[in-house]
C-alpha cells in the first residue's frame, strides 16, 4: 500500500502540490491524470523519495519514507520499479546489461544465472533478440519496453511506478505495453501508480483514477465515480478524449 498524507511540494514560493491525500491499496493500480505540468511526475518523485515534500508524509507499506536516511532509502528502493518518462536507460550499457544491472548490484548470482533471468525478462517484453543492442539503436517503444523489463528485474518488486509509459507510441505498441503492465501487476501483485494523459490506456490498466489540477486532487475513485463526476474539468477531459 502506498499512502500520501497531506503532501505539499513547492519549489521556492511556487507550490506544485498542495495537501495531497492519496491511497493506493496493495495490488491495485492507481492512474493519475492531469494536464502537462500539473505535478504528476512530482508525485512519483515523492513516492521514490528523490524529492522531499515540504509538508506531509509518504508511507509505503506503513513505512514513512521521509524518516529514512540515505542508505535505508537506497535499500528501500530495491523493491521498487520505476519506468521513466523517457526510459532513462543507461546508454553506455547494452539492453541486456541494463536489465542485468539490478541483479549485478544487489545479488550474487553467477553470470549464467543473471543471463537466464535477463533473457526471461526480455522475452516477457518481447525483446529477446535485441539483447546486445545499445539503447540508442532502439525505437521509442522498444526503449520503453526495455525500461519495463529493467524495472521488473528486482526479484520481488512490490511497487511499480510508470511515468507516461505509452506517450508518443502507436496504438498497437501502446496496447501491448498496457497488457504488459497488467501482467506485471497480476504476476507480482505489485502496487502501481501510472501517470498518463491517455484515457484509453488509463481504462486499460487502472483500478482507481485520480485527477489533479492546480496543485490539488479534484477527484479520485473508480471508473464509475470518475465518469459520473460533475466537475466541469473532468467532464471536459473525458469528453475531449472520446
Amino acid at each position: 500500500m502506498i499512502r500520501l498524507e497531506n503532501v505539499t511540494v513547492a519549489y521556492g514560493s511556487r507550490v506544485i502540490l498542495e495537501e495531497i491525500d492519496l491511497e493506493i491499496p496493495t495490488g491495485k493500480t492507481m492512474v493519475i491524470l492531469g494536464e502537462s505540468g500539473s505535478g504528476k511526475t512530482t508525485i512519483l518523485k515523492c513516492v521514490l523519495g528523490t524529492l522531499h515534500p515540504v509538508k506531509g508524509r509518504v508511507l509505503a507499506n506503513g513505512q514513512d519514507i521521509s524518516t529514512l536516511n540515505e542508505s535505508d532509502l537506497l535499500r528501500f528502493r530495491q523493491r521498487m520499479g520505476m519506468v521513466f518518462q523517457e526510459g532513462a536507460l543507461f546508454d553506455s550499457l547494452t539492453v541486456g546489461e541494463n536489465v542485468a544491472f539490478w541483479l549485478w548490484e544487489h545479488t550474487s548470482l553467477s553470470d549464467e544465472e543473471v543471463e537466464t533471468r535477463v533473457r526471461t525478462l526480455l522475452r516477457f517484453v518481447g525483446l529477446e533478440n535485441s539483447i546486445d543492442f545499445k539503447p540508442s539503436d532502439l525505437s521509442g517503444g522498444m526503449r520503453r519496453r526495455v525500461a519495463i523489463a529493467r524495472a521488473m528485474a528486482a526479484e520481488d518488486p512490490a511497487f511499480m511506478l510508470y511515468d507516461e509509459p505509452t506517450t508518443g507510441l502507436d496504438p498497437f505498441t501502446s496496447k501491448s505495453i498496457c497488457d504488459l503492465m497488467r501482467r506485471v501487476q497480476r504476476e507480482f501483485t505489485t502496487t502501481n501508480i501510472v501517470v498518463t494523459h491517455d484515457l484509453t490506456d488509463a481504462y486499460r490498466v487502472g483500478d482507481l483514477f485520480t485527477f489533479i489540477k492546480d496543485a490539488k486532487i479534484i477527484a479520485t475513485g473508480s471508473r464509475q465515480d470518475i465518469e459520473h463526476s460533475h466537475d466541469p474539468f473532468i467532464k471536459t477531459f473525458l469528453s475531449l478524449d472520446s
Binding site: L48, T50, E70, S71, L74, R75, F76, R77, Q78, M80, M82, F84, Q85, E86, A88, L89, F90, D91, F101, W102, E105, H106, A154
Partner: peptide, 14 residues
C-alpha cells in the same frame, strides 16, 4: 539530464 542518475538512485544504487 536524461534521468539516468535518478534511475540509479531508484534502483537502490548510489
Amino acid at each position: 539530464t536524461t534521468q539516468q542518475i535518478e534511475a540509479l538512485l531508484v534502483m537502490g544504487v548510489d
